[in-house]
Amino acid sequence: MIDGITHWLIGLGASVRAGVTRLGFATRFMIAVFKASGPTFARPRLLIHELYHAGVLSLIIVLMSGLFIGMVLALQGYETLVRFGATEAMGVLVALSLVRELGPVVAGLLFASRAGSAITAEIGLMKTTEQLAAMEVMAVDPVARVVAPRFWAGVISLPLLAALFSTLGIYGGYLVAVKLIGIDNGAFWGQMQAAVDWRYDVGNGVIKSVVFACAVSLIAVFEGFDATPTAEGVSAATTRTVVTSALVILALDFILTVFMFRGSAVG
Protein backbone atom coordinates (compact mmCIF):
# COMPACT_ATOMS: atom_id res chain seq x y z
CA MET A 1 0.00 0.00 0.00
CA ILE A 2 2.66 2.51 1.13
CA ASP A 3 4.81 1.20 -1.68
CA GLY A 4 2.02 1.87 -4.14
CA ILE A 5 1.57 5.46 -2.95
CA THR A 6 5.33 6.08 -3.00
CA HIS A 7 5.47 4.66 -6.50
CA TRP A 8 2.62 6.90 -7.61
CA LEU A 9 4.21 9.96 -6.01
CA ILE A 10 7.52 9.22 -7.68
CA GLY A 11 5.74 8.96 -11.00
CA LEU A 12 3.93 12.24 -10.38
CA GLY A 13 7.14 13.99 -9.40
CA ALA A 14 8.95 12.69 -12.45
CA SER A 15 6.25 13.87 -14.83
CA VAL A 16 6.09 17.29 -13.15
CA ARG A 17 9.86 17.58 -13.41
CA ALA A 18 9.78 16.55 -17.06
CA GLY A 19 7.03 19.07 -17.76
CA VAL A 20 8.89 21.90 -16.07
CA THR A 21 12.09 21.00 -17.90
CA ARG A 22 10.26 21.08 -21.21
CA LEU A 23 8.69 24.40 -20.36
CA GLY A 24 12.15 25.72 -19.59
CA PHE A 25 13.44 24.43 -22.91
CA ALA A 26 10.51 26.07 -24.70
CA THR A 27 11.22 29.39 -22.99
CA ARG A 28 14.91 29.30 -23.87
CA PHE A 29 13.96 28.31 -27.39
CA MET A 30 11.61 31.28 -27.61
CA ILE A 31 14.40 33.62 -26.52
CA ALA A 32 16.70 32.06 -29.12
CA VAL A 33 14.05 32.57 -31.80
CA PHE A 34 13.67 36.24 -30.88
CA LYS A 35 17.43 36.73 -30.87
CA ALA A 36 17.75 35.10 -34.28
CA SER A 37 14.90 37.10 -35.81
CA GLY A 38 17.02 39.93 -37.21
CA PRO A 39 17.92 38.18 -40.48
CA THR A 40 14.27 37.23 -41.02
CA PHE A 41 13.31 40.84 -41.51
CA ALA A 42 16.55 41.74 -43.26
CA ARG A 43 15.76 39.11 -45.89
CA PRO A 44 12.00 39.24 -46.49
CA ARG A 45 12.16 36.58 -49.21
CA LEU A 46 12.20 33.76 -46.65
CA LEU A 47 9.38 35.37 -44.72
CA ILE A 48 7.27 35.78 -47.86
CA HIS A 49 7.83 32.14 -48.72
CA GLU A 50 6.60 31.07 -45.29
CA LEU A 51 3.70 33.53 -45.39
CA TYR A 52 2.56 31.72 -48.48
CA HIS A 53 2.66 28.34 -46.74
CA ALA A 54 1.17 29.46 -43.44
CA GLY A 55 -1.25 32.14 -44.62
CA VAL A 56 -2.30 31.70 -48.22
CA LEU A 57 -2.69 27.94 -47.97
CA SER A 58 -4.91 28.36 -44.88
CA LEU A 59 -7.18 30.87 -46.63
CA ILE A 60 -9.73 28.48 -48.10
CA ILE A 61 -10.46 26.57 -44.91
CA VAL A 62 -10.65 29.75 -42.83
CA LEU A 63 -12.88 31.63 -45.27
CA MET A 64 -15.27 28.72 -45.74
CA SER A 65 -15.51 28.00 -42.01
CA GLY A 66 -16.12 31.68 -41.29
CA LEU A 67 -18.93 31.90 -43.80
CA PHE A 68 -20.69 28.81 -42.50
CA ILE A 69 -20.26 29.65 -38.84
CA GLY A 70 -21.73 33.10 -39.47
CA MET A 71 -24.72 31.59 -41.24
CA VAL A 72 -25.31 29.05 -38.47
CA LEU A 73 -24.99 31.77 -35.83
CA ALA A 74 -27.67 33.80 -37.55
CA LEU A 75 -30.02 30.83 -37.89
CA GLN A 76 -29.60 29.77 -34.28
CA GLY A 77 -29.65 33.34 -33.02
CA TYR A 78 -32.93 33.96 -34.80
CA GLU A 79 -34.54 31.03 -32.93
CA THR A 80 -33.69 32.67 -29.62
CA LEU A 81 -34.14 36.34 -30.50
CA VAL A 82 -37.54 35.85 -32.09
CA ARG A 83 -38.93 34.74 -28.71
CA PHE A 84 -38.08 38.13 -27.24
CA GLY A 85 -39.10 40.03 -30.32
CA ALA A 86 -35.57 41.31 -30.68
CA THR A 87 -34.59 39.98 -34.09
CA GLU A 88 -33.17 43.39 -35.00
CA ALA A 89 -30.36 42.65 -32.55
CA MET A 90 -29.18 39.88 -34.88
CA GLY A 91 -26.39 42.04 -36.25
CA VAL A 92 -25.13 42.69 -32.74
CA LEU A 93 -25.28 39.03 -31.82
CA VAL A 94 -23.41 37.85 -34.91
CA ALA A 95 -20.82 40.62 -34.90
CA LEU A 96 -20.02 40.53 -31.20
CA SER A 97 -19.72 36.75 -30.96
CA LEU A 98 -17.48 36.65 -34.05
CA VAL A 99 -15.28 39.63 -33.33
CA ARG A 100 -14.78 38.93 -29.64
CA GLU A 101 -14.65 35.16 -29.47
CA LEU A 102 -15.26 32.97 -32.47
CA GLY A 103 -13.00 34.80 -34.91
CA PRO A 104 -9.78 34.58 -32.91
CA VAL A 105 -10.52 31.20 -31.30
CA VAL A 106 -11.85 29.21 -34.25
CA ALA A 107 -9.38 30.76 -36.70
CA GLY A 108 -6.65 29.89 -34.17
CA LEU A 109 -7.81 26.28 -33.92
CA LEU A 110 -8.04 25.94 -37.70
CA PHE A 111 -4.64 27.56 -38.11
CA ALA A 112 -3.09 25.18 -35.58
CA SER A 113 -4.40 22.14 -37.40
CA ARG A 114 -3.73 23.40 -40.92
CA ALA A 115 -0.51 25.42 -40.71
CA GLY A 116 0.84 24.58 -37.23
CA SER A 117 0.92 20.85 -37.87
CA ALA A 118 2.53 21.43 -41.27
CA ILE A 119 5.26 23.58 -39.72
CA THR A 120 5.97 20.96 -37.06
CA ALA A 121 6.10 18.16 -39.61
CA GLU A 122 8.36 20.15 -41.91
CA ILE A 123 10.88 21.12 -39.24
CA GLY A 124 10.71 17.65 -37.68
CA LEU A 125 11.43 16.07 -41.05
CA MET A 126 14.34 18.45 -41.66
CA LYS A 127 15.74 17.35 -38.31
CA THR A 128 15.21 13.67 -39.09
CA THR A 129 16.99 13.91 -42.44
CA GLU A 130 19.86 15.87 -40.84
CA GLN A 131 19.09 18.98 -42.87
CA LEU A 132 19.25 21.09 -39.71
CA ALA A 133 22.55 19.50 -38.72
CA ALA A 134 23.87 20.13 -42.23
CA MET A 135 23.03 23.81 -41.89
CA GLU A 136 24.75 23.98 -38.55
CA VAL A 137 27.90 22.47 -40.03
CA MET A 138 27.70 25.00 -42.88
CA ALA A 139 27.84 27.67 -40.16
CA VAL A 140 24.22 28.64 -40.83
CA ASP A 141 22.07 28.93 -37.73
CA PRO A 142 18.98 26.76 -38.35
CA VAL A 143 17.00 28.78 -35.80
CA ALA A 144 17.58 31.94 -37.85
CA ARG A 145 17.22 30.28 -41.24
CA VAL A 146 14.40 27.78 -40.67
CA VAL A 147 12.61 28.49 -37.40
CA ALA A 148 12.37 32.28 -37.16
CA PRO A 149 10.77 32.87 -40.61
CA ARG A 150 8.13 30.24 -39.88
CA PHE A 151 7.44 31.68 -36.44
CA TRP A 152 6.98 35.22 -37.73
CA ALA A 153 4.94 34.06 -40.71
CA GLY A 154 2.54 32.46 -38.23
CA VAL A 155 2.47 35.56 -36.03
CA ILE A 156 1.59 37.73 -39.04
CA SER A 157 -0.84 35.30 -40.69
CA LEU A 158 -3.18 34.39 -37.87
CA PRO A 159 -4.47 37.89 -37.00
CA LEU A 160 -5.20 38.49 -40.70
CA LEU A 161 -6.91 35.10 -40.98
CA ALA A 162 -8.96 35.82 -37.85
CA ALA A 163 -10.09 39.17 -39.27
CA LEU A 164 -11.05 37.47 -42.53
CA PHE A 165 -12.88 34.78 -40.58
CA SER A 166 -14.92 37.39 -38.68
CA THR A 167 -15.63 39.38 -41.82
CA LEU A 168 -16.84 36.37 -43.76
CA GLY A 169 -18.83 35.27 -40.70
CA ILE A 170 -20.58 38.64 -40.51
CA TYR A 171 -21.27 38.42 -44.21
CA GLY A 172 -22.69 34.92 -43.74
CA GLY A 173 -24.85 36.20 -40.90
CA TYR A 174 -26.00 39.06 -43.13
CA LEU A 175 -26.94 36.61 -45.89
CA VAL A 176 -29.09 34.53 -43.57
CA ALA A 177 -30.55 37.36 -41.50
CA VAL A 178 -31.31 39.87 -44.24
CA LYS A 179 -31.60 37.86 -47.43
CA LEU A 180 -33.09 34.66 -46.06
CA ILE A 181 -35.08 35.61 -42.96
CA GLY A 182 -35.86 39.15 -44.05
CA ILE A 183 -34.64 41.23 -41.13
CA ASP A 184 -34.37 44.90 -42.05
CA ASN A 185 -31.01 45.68 -43.63
CA GLY A 186 -30.69 49.04 -41.84
CA ALA A 187 -31.53 47.56 -38.45
CA PHE A 188 -28.98 44.76 -38.94
CA TRP A 189 -26.07 47.07 -39.67
CA GLY A 190 -27.26 50.02 -37.59
CA GLN A 191 -27.68 48.08 -34.37
CA MET A 192 -24.37 46.36 -35.00
CA GLN A 193 -22.57 49.64 -35.43
CA ALA A 194 -24.22 51.11 -32.36
CA ALA A 195 -23.23 48.17 -30.17
CA VAL A 196 -19.77 47.20 -31.42
CA ASP A 197 -16.97 49.44 -30.25
CA TRP A 198 -13.94 49.45 -32.54
CA ARG A 199 -11.44 49.71 -29.73
CA TYR A 200 -13.15 47.70 -27.04
CA ASP A 201 -14.56 44.84 -29.13
CA VAL A 202 -12.61 44.79 -32.41
CA GLY A 203 -9.34 45.88 -30.81
CA ASN A 204 -9.49 43.29 -28.06
CA GLY A 205 -10.38 40.63 -30.61
CA VAL A 206 -7.28 41.53 -32.60
CA ILE A 207 -5.13 41.43 -29.45
CA LYS A 208 -6.51 37.97 -28.74
CA SER A 209 -5.64 36.75 -32.21
CA VAL A 210 -2.09 38.13 -31.92
CA VAL A 211 -1.61 36.33 -28.60
CA PHE A 212 -2.95 33.08 -30.06
CA ALA A 213 -0.73 33.54 -33.10
CA CYS A 214 2.40 33.82 -30.96
CA ALA A 215 1.37 30.80 -28.86
CA VAL A 216 0.47 28.52 -31.79
CA SER A 217 3.52 29.49 -33.86
CA LEU A 218 5.85 28.96 -30.94
CA ILE A 219 4.32 25.57 -30.13
CA ALA A 220 4.54 24.51 -33.78
CA VAL A 221 8.20 25.44 -34.29
CA PHE A 222 9.22 24.15 -30.87
CA GLU A 223 7.55 20.76 -31.32
CA GLY A 224 9.20 20.43 -34.71
CA PHE A 225 12.63 21.40 -33.45
CA ASP A 226 12.28 19.22 -30.37
CA ALA A 227 10.85 16.20 -32.20
CA THR A 228 12.54 12.83 -31.81
CA PRO A 229 14.29 12.46 -35.17
CA THR A 230 12.37 9.39 -36.33
CA ALA A 231 9.19 8.90 -38.33
CA GLU A 232 7.20 8.09 -35.17
CA GLY A 233 8.78 11.04 -33.39
CA VAL A 234 7.66 13.49 -36.07
CA SER A 235 4.12 12.15 -36.20
CA ALA A 236 3.86 12.29 -32.40
CA ALA A 237 5.16 15.87 -32.44
CA THR A 238 2.60 16.85 -35.07
CA THR A 239 -0.21 15.48 -32.93
CA ARG A 240 1.18 17.26 -29.88
CA THR A 241 1.21 20.54 -31.79
CA VAL A 242 -2.49 20.34 -32.56
CA VAL A 243 -3.53 19.15 -29.09
CA THR A 244 -1.34 21.56 -27.15
CA SER A 245 -2.29 24.49 -29.38
CA ALA A 246 -6.00 23.80 -28.91
CA LEU A 247 -5.69 23.61 -25.14
CA VAL A 248 -3.46 26.67 -24.93
CA ILE A 249 -5.79 28.72 -27.16
CA LEU A 250 -8.83 27.87 -25.04
CA ALA A 251 -7.01 28.50 -21.75
CA LEU A 252 -5.55 31.79 -22.96
CA ASP A 253 -8.96 32.79 -24.31
CA PHE A 254 -10.50 32.36 -20.88
CA ILE A 255 -7.75 34.38 -19.21
CA LEU A 256 -7.87 37.17 -21.80
CA THR A 257 -11.66 37.33 -21.70
CA VAL A 258 -11.59 37.70 -17.92
CA PHE A 259 -9.21 40.63 -18.22
CA MET A 260 -10.75 42.28 -21.27
CA PHE A 261 -14.49 41.91 -20.90
CA ARG A 262 -15.09 41.34 -17.21
CA GLY A 263 -15.94 45.02 -16.73
CA SER A 264 -18.99 44.87 -18.93
CA ALA A 265 -20.13 41.48 -17.66
CA VAL A 266 -20.21 42.61 -14.04
CA GLY A 267 -21.45 46.09 -14.29
Partner: peptide, 20 residues
Protein backbone atom coordinates in the same frame (compact mmCIF):
# COMPACT_ATOMS: atom_id res chain seq x y z
CA UNK B 1 -3.39 39.24 -52.14
CA UNK B 2 -3.50 37.54 -48.77
CA UNK B 3 -2.06 40.51 -46.87
CA UNK B 4 -4.24 42.98 -48.79
CA UNK B 5 -7.54 41.20 -48.14
CA UNK B 6 -6.47 40.48 -44.54
CA UNK B 7 -5.83 44.15 -43.90
CA UNK B 8 -9.04 45.19 -45.63
CA UNK B 9 -10.92 42.73 -43.41
CA UNK B 10 -9.38 44.45 -40.39
CA UNK B 11 -10.46 47.84 -41.76
CA UNK B 12 -13.91 46.50 -42.47
CA UNK B 13 -14.25 45.31 -38.89
CA UNK B 14 -13.02 48.60 -37.50
CA UNK B 15 -14.95 50.91 -39.84
CA UNK B 16 -18.13 49.19 -40.88
CA UNK B 17 -18.71 46.95 -37.85
CA UNK B 18 -16.99 48.89 -35.10
CA UNK B 19 -17.90 52.34 -36.39
CA UNK B 20 -14.43 53.83 -36.14
Amino acid sequence: IFVAIGLSALFFLALKVGNL
